[in-house]
Design a protein around this nucleic acid. Sequence first.
DNA 1: GGATTTGTCAAGTGGCGACTTTAGTATCGC
DNA 2: GCGATACTAAAGTCGCCACTTGACAAATCC
Lengths: 107, 107
Amino acid sequence: MLKHAAVDRVFRALGDPTRRSILERISRRPASASELVRPMRVTLAAVVQHLQVLEASGLIRTEKVGRVRSCRVRPEGLEVAERWIAQRRAAWSERFDRPGRILEGRS
Amino acid sequence: MLKHAAVDRVFRALGDPTRRSILERISRRPASASELVRPMRVTLAAVVQHLQVLEASGLIRTEKVGRVRSCRVRPEGLEVAERWIAQRRAAWSERFDRPGRILEGRS
DNA sequence: GGATTTGTCAAGTGGCGACTTTAGTATCGC
DNA sequence: GCGATACTAAAGTCGCCACTTGACAAATCC
């Protein structure tokens, strides 16, 4: 059923380049917050804030062991986005695939 | 190759609920700006601004005929998002599908 | 032609979001 | 224990973004 707010969080999360680059990084392999900062030119604090956004959106999962917080991708998180897109495609193609109905016109 | 800025524009565009509802509406059938305002509780000016964002991101195509600007979905626009997601999935599953390599560790 | 509909343009407002700095807390290595 | 590492929490700054208002332009309708 695709909850409005969930879709919102996911797409908003994906709308930031820093967050996407975090996702790109940890979809290859999990990483800690400080490992993630290294190649970037933002503060650790900024990265942690991004991690919070990503986790709230369901796109990543983090776990603190000892003093290090390790972050890994949550592949199911992307399904929210994928499903929304799939629904748009479905609605769009429905206009053409309907036998016995004319393209234009209502319904 | 998925240009950084293009991905940005698409996901940012999708990150707004009003814009998504515009997309949902016109993926069923094209509509004019004023038709789009009707069910919403924002100004026409706001809707037009959203349309500009959507068009700049490649998600819709608009065409002005007479005094009415009609908006239709541009299905290729979504491919940018789909490809980015697909690449994440690919990178993620690569960690497991690789025969002869151990899960953890570098490379 | 005159009123209405449909959209455009420009400017202003308010809030949120990305980021920083500063200060503090736990954990690890020696 | 001590220093360094790895975060956490709180506060402040700044710019952008969604939205409004108001004035204007151009089709369309009668």
